[in-house]
Design a protein around this nucleic acid. Structure first.
Length: 495
RNA sequence: GCCGCGUUCGUCUAGGGGUCUAGGACGCCGCCCUUUCACGGCGGUAGCACGGGUUCAAAUCCCGUACGCGGUACCA
């Protein structure tokens, strides 16, 4: 790849950063870094109505959490600012004027009501997709139909107007997409897209072309939902006489039940849609990134686990697939387990202290916590599960797991009592996993029952659960006093 | 409806005319390990949407059909 690679991620601040948006950002970032290029963040805040105050902050936080570093953006000055479209209004106006002068665009004065009427009229006469096109515009109020004095008068009087792109009547528009190859559209299927809105803001179409050009963007990597408006952008580049950046339209992320991963769909499928939720729910950012990278792309070998750095090295656009990819939450969890397990007990313990809102854990002895983490971490998918599963290391069971209780049989009390009597005389130094286990074996042999007959009730008594880390090691960690106390309580409550 | 883009195991994917009785991963199932739950190890399950071409040969190329998705705004 020759020249300076510059790509941009251009979200509109209308809400929290969508997981699909994060993937688009990721692909842009990987592509940029692979080619030693720049990753630019541009805020596309041209829709005043949908603007959300906290959205920009959320985008920044989410990208930072994910490990995607911004080279230029609203908070990282570069030579091509400003990076917020709302701060570039005069630039768009200048270029809109240029288009009008060259005849590629025109003023239109139609009101919303008039447009509605036009559409209604066309639908009634059997046109299922009414357009403001080369035919329709002849019967509308615009600088193509109105006498120039009238246009002049209206503009001077401050009448509301929009600027529309004058789409040629019959023309085949072709372009090459890195992912999809040759793509072509007929101009007759396009309408005279509004370029400048009556509130003075540009639409996406104008703004994105002007900005990509003036920010010297080399590659536009965006979602497939933009594919069908690309011909309009082609027309714009042609009208300006600018070279168009290379285009790459990414496949969409789909919901397990089908369709674009929308808020509604995702929720009913039990999938979180905002990056923020993954942060809040303590996913490992590396896992999300790795998972997202593989959702629509693969390096072509059998590898699965890659750090961001490694992904940067491997990523190329020609290995992006064309079809939509279904979000597979179980695979995400699998990635999460991988990244969780490769961290040291020490590091995880420190993080657990931070995220736990349990005073007993926050104040726990580091050594003790680390040992607990060690016993637990192979059994959970996410770091927060460690806290719920390991709660018994810090608190006596308040209640006993309903499912586990099924294993508390008629003879359980008797067996547990025998075991208790057996270990009660153990000294603190002898209260070790191995010893605790051999004592249990002693009892079951004596009573001629299976291992589980005693082990399960004992587990319930000590932990309140029917599953978990190795019981004997856990008892050793808990210590004699705690274990005996819990056994007594259980005997009382469950007998 | 129209326009566009897609379609390999349930899911993510490898595959670019012969090496494909289609490879890997997640999931699921089984076995081993563990006298628990997991981890781990081993094995298994399952797929080229359909129909026509082209070719000695097609998952791979072409054309249709079906299905899916996207777009069709003074939203991005």
């Amino acid at each position: 790849m020759k020249g300076n690679i510059r790509v941009r991620f251009a979200p509109s601040p209308t809400g929290f950063l969508h997981i699909g948006g994060l993937r688009t950002a990721l692909y842009n970032y990987l592509f940029a870094k692979h080619h030693n290029g720049k990753f630019i963040l541009r805020i596309e805040d041209t829709d005043q109505n949908r603007y959300v105050e906290e959205a920009e902050r959320d985008i920044l936080d989410s990208l930072a959490w994910a490990g995607i570093e911004i080279d230029e953006g609203p908070h990282k000055k570069g030579a091509f600012g400003p990076y917020r479209q709302s701060e570039r209004k005069d630039i768009y106006h200048k270029y809109a004027d240029e288009l009008i002068k060259s005849g590629a665009a025109y003023y239109a004065f139609d009101t919303t009501e008039e447009l509605d009427q036009m559409r209604e009229r066309l639908v009634k006469s059997g046109n299922p997709s009414p357009k403001y096109d080369s035919i329709t515009r002849q019967s509308m109020m615009n600088s193509l139909t109105l006498p120039s004095e009238e246009v002049e008068r209206r503009l001077e009087a401050g009448d509301e107007y929009v600027v529309r792109l004058k789409v040629p009547r019959r023309e085949t528009i072709r372009f090459d997409d890195i992912i999809r190859g040759h793509v072509s559209f007929e101009s007759k299927g396009l309408d005279d897209q509004v370029l400048l809105k009556s509130d003075g803001m540009p639409t996406y179409h104008l703004a994105n072309v002007v900005d990509d050009h003036s920010m010297e963007i080399s590659h536009v990597i965006r979602g497939e939902e933009w594919l069908s408006s690309t011909p309009k952008h082609v027309l714009l580049y042609e009208a300006f006489g600018w070279e168009m950046p290379q285009m790459a339209h990414l496949p969409l992320i789909m919901s397990p039940s089908g369709g674009k991963l929308s808020k509604r769909k995702a929720e009913s499928d039990g999938i979180s849609i905002n990056t923020k939720d993954y942060m809040k729910n303590h996913y490992e950012p590396e896992a999300l990134i790795n998972f997202l990278a593989y959702l629509g792309w693969s390096p072509g070998d059998d590898s699965e686990i890659h750090s961001m750095e490694s992904l940067c090295n491997l990523f190329t656009l020609d290995r992006v697939s064309k079809g939509g990819a279904v979000f597979n939450h179980k695979k995400l969890l699998w990635y999460n387990e991988n990244y969780l397990r490769e961290q040291s007990d020490h590091a995880i313990a420190a993080r657990v202290k931070k995220i736990a809102d349990d005073a007993a854990i926050q104040e726990a002895d580091d050594q003790f916590l680390e040992e607990a983490v060690h016993l637990l971490k192979d059994r959970v998918s996410k770091i927060d599960e460690l806290i719920t599963m390991g709660s018994f290391f810090f608190h006596d069971p308040k209640e006993y797991d309903e499912n586990a209780l099924k294993k508390w049989k008629d003879d359980s009390s008797e067996l547990v009592t025998l075991y208790k009597n057996n270990i009660v005389s153990l000294s603190t130094e002898d209260f070790k996993a191995e010893t605790l286990k051999s004592h249990l074996e002693e009892i079951i042999n004596l009573q001629e029952v299976g291992f589980g007959k005693l082990m399960m009730p004992l587990r319930i008594a000590v932990t309140g659960l029917g599953f978990g880390p190795d019981l004997f090691t856990s008892m050793e960690l808990l210590g004699k006093a705690t274990v005996l106390r819990r056994i007594d309580t259980a005997l009382e409550k469950l007998d």
